[in-house]
């Protein structure tokens, strides 16, 4: 057990350090902060809403992450495959799970850092009015799980190929499906030909619907379970893909 944690930590540390030794991490942070800032304050009309909440901020997250999370995660395994270091890593005395978890957690932690750097938005809301800070906290938590779900999916697509571009496109497509599953124009379209049960099943995969509760300050176990199962399933699939050599 102890040695498993040790291995996970070792892998995660290397991964995280490698982000910050390359300019990619900083470029990502800048783009993420500019983009969320722009969408919240300009397109989301944060000030004009006249309400002290971060809904204008969080509402964009499923879309911002749609591009940025696959961009960060696409190299996770594709690069190991391309460079041949996968062979090195998987012949070390660690299990594939430890490597998968280590790399995933490092990348998730990096996304958490990016998310934490948006704290000025929360401060602004507190200066201007009296927002429900519990809801803000729940929103951040939900956003973190949303990012985690996208990241786990990117992990899986990244393990399938040595080409980062393919990994990127595949994960964007899958994540887009998870957004659109509950998007009303799509569900309205589906109602015409699909049975209500099917529509409901598809809509149950909607990350937007599961994220909405968090934004209102409700931490529903069902939503948590949803995100954790997406993460769990995707990481499990990553393991299966990596083992099939």
């Amino acid at each position: 057990m102890n040695s498993a944690l040790h291995a996970i930590r070792t892998i995660a540390k290397r991964e995280l350090v490698s982000y910050f030794t390359s300019p990619v991490a900083y470029v990502f942070l800048v783009i993420f902060l500019l983009l969320t800032g722009f969408l919240t304050f300009t397109a989301g009309s944060f000030f004009e809403r006249g309400e002290a909440s971060l809904s204008a901020f969080f509402a964009w997250h499923p879309w911002v992450y749609l591009v940025l999370v696959p961009a960060v995660g696409m190299r996770l395994w594709a690069e190991e495959r391309r460079a041949g270091t996968l062979e090195l890593l998987l012949t070390m005395p660690i299990t594939a799970w430890q490597a998968i978890l280590g790399k995933f957690l490092a990348c998730w932690l990096f996304l958490a850092i990016a998310l934490a750097l948006t704290f000025p938005v929360a401060i602004t809301a507190n200066v201007l009015g009296e927002p429900d800070n519990g809801a803000i906290f729940a929103g951040y938590l939900g956003s973190l799980f949303l990012a985690g779900a996208y990241l786990a999916i990117t992990c899986m697509t990244s393990a399938m190929t040595r080409n980062q571009v393919i990994a990127f496109i595949l994960s964007v497509v899958i994540c887009l499906f998870l957004i659109l599953a509950g998007f009303s124009p799509v569900t309205d379209l589906m109602v015409r030909w699909a049975s209500p049960a099917l529509v409901d099943t598809v809509a149950a995969f909607s990350v937007v619907a599961h994220f909405e509760g968090f934004q209102k300050g409700v931490i529903d176990t069902r939503d948590l379970i949803f995100f954790l199962s997406v993460i769990g399933f995707s990481l499990f699939a990553t393991g299966v893909v990596l083992r099939s050599r």
Binding site: R14, S18, T21, S22, A83, G84, T85, E87, L88, T91
Partner: peptide, 13 residues
């Protein structure tokens, strides 16, 4: 101890 054919390593380290 294993030396793979392509002698891979992490270039950023």
């Amino acid at each position: 101890g294993y030396l793979p054919e392509a002698a891979p390593s992490y270039p950023d380290m």
